[in-house]
Design a protein around this nucleic acid. Structure first.
Lengths: 183, 183
DNA sequence: GTCTATACGCCGATAGAC
DNA sequence: GTCTATCGGCGTATAGAC
């Protein structure tokens, strides 16, 4: 029967997107229920119908991250250029759904949210495993730390818009470094 | 005349240390004036005598960082093992005064505190300059990102106590990678 | 499903006693 | 220099109308 499948309410998705955007742009502290409701175009009461409290909102963001990370890990494992080069290139913040979910979760980890930190460590471990299969366990660490450094630095420049040209050149420097380490 | 030089009040220093510790341990949001006063063993009113508002507290932390960073940059420039190796080794969070000031400032940068981000970018640029003089401008980026990645990851494990043994091994992996990049 | 109104606590900051 | 008392504002959450 057409139309009987559970469609997610639009408002709910809008709220979640708004929360994600605000986490990215202004951090967890300023991503208040008021601000989220305002950006999503609903009232605070409306927001709290879909997400009974702020924790529920956070859980939804982390759940979204898990799904996107699973897809991304599959792509990384199958990348023809190798996991290491794929990883470095994807560490350039390009505003994909995965990037957005990742950075949003980072904001939560920053304020010592335990569950966010757990999910994070989990994903990073899986990255490391794929890198180790590509360049060996020792150099895998070097590659992962390079990617992490790239990512975290980009986050502080106000998003993908900030210093894109310079950072793109940095990525090529890192790819070159990876090639040298591999050889 | 002995005793006429301005000695910093002990309480003031205790408050500043407490603020720094709480920033490191629980992040900016939970480092409230109440929490800081409690940890420092003074009342909120007592705290606000030394620092008229929270911004003053933040400024003091950033000022402390600048002084310690200046000293550290001098050591890095003169390091016999070379700036790159010195940099990687010092990126292991070892709870020095410099490390503490740095991580505390990071917490402020995380919540989009503009002045904190400026100081940060400034210090990182100086690191990069020293690295470039050691290993060339291109590889300097790779080294700096490795150090950054190491640092940021360590920050999420609740401080220098977390996973120290494993991380120490990581540092040696990175140093090995640097040596290969240099050669 | 979405709104308004409101309760309640916590945070930053002021006033003023000691 | 350090304290207590207190205020205004904001953030989360609840109650209940529509």
């Amino acid at each position: 029967m057409i139309g009987t499948m559970a469609r997610k309410p639009v408002a709910r998705e809008a709220v979640l997107d708004a929360f994600e955007s605000l986490l990215i742009e202004v951090g967890e502290r300023a991503a208040t229920l008021d601000a989220v409701a305002g950006r999503a175009g609903v009232s605070k009461g409306g927001l709290l119908y879909h997400f009974p409290n702020k924790e529920a909102l956070i859980s939804a963001v982390l759940h979204r991250l898990d799904e996107l990370a699973r897809e991304d890990l599959a792509l990384m494992a199958a990348a023809p250029e190798g996991a290491a080069v794929y990883f470095i290139r994807s560490s350039l913040w390009s505003d994909t759904p995965m990037d957005r979910a990742f950075v949003a979760a980072t904001r939560l980890a920053e304020v010592a949210h335990e569950e966010a930190r757990r999910r994070f460590a989990n994903i990073q471990q899986q990255w490391l495993d794929l890198l180790a299969a590509d360049v060996g366990p020792d150099m895998a660490k070097a590659v992962r730390y390079m990617g992490d450094g790239l990512y975290f630095n980009a986050m502080w420049e106000g998003g993908p818009a900030g210093a894109t040209v310079e950072r793109r050149a940095d990525v090529e420097s890192l790819v070159a470094a990876v090639e040298r380490l591999r050889g």
